[in-house]
């Protein structure tokens, strides 16, 4: 992985009930600096839908989405 893409923080939201996966992602991003990357593990379906929408609305950027078996790994870059 490119050094610039290395996440500075990582959370696992698998098993969380909506909207907690979105809320935890929001809180984690709140404490980060612009440009920093957050790695989030998410279950497929509703969590991916809710988190990706909210991340975008808050002005952050999803830079990578990977399917790892039954869950997803999302890399989010904190916006300005």
């Amino acid at each position: 992985m490119n050094k610039d893409m290395a996440p500075s923080r990582s959370i696992d939201t698998c098993g969380e009930v909506c909207p907690m996966n979105m809320v935890r992602t929001k809180f984690e991003l709140k404490d980060m600096l612009p440009g920093e990357i957050l790695e989030v593990a998410l279950e497929a379906g509703e969590p991916v839908r809710n988190v990706s929408r909210s991340v975008k609305e808050d002005g952050n950027r999803i830079i990578k989405l990977e399917k790892l078996g039954t869950h997803y790994r999302m890399l989010i870059q904190k916006g300005e």
């Binding site: 497929a44 991916v48 839908r49 990706s52 990578k64």
Partner: peptide, 8 residues
């Protein structure tokens, strides 16, 4: 081509 749209 990240596939997010297909997933959601």
């Amino acid at each position: 081509g990240c596939g997010l749209c297909q997933e959601i």
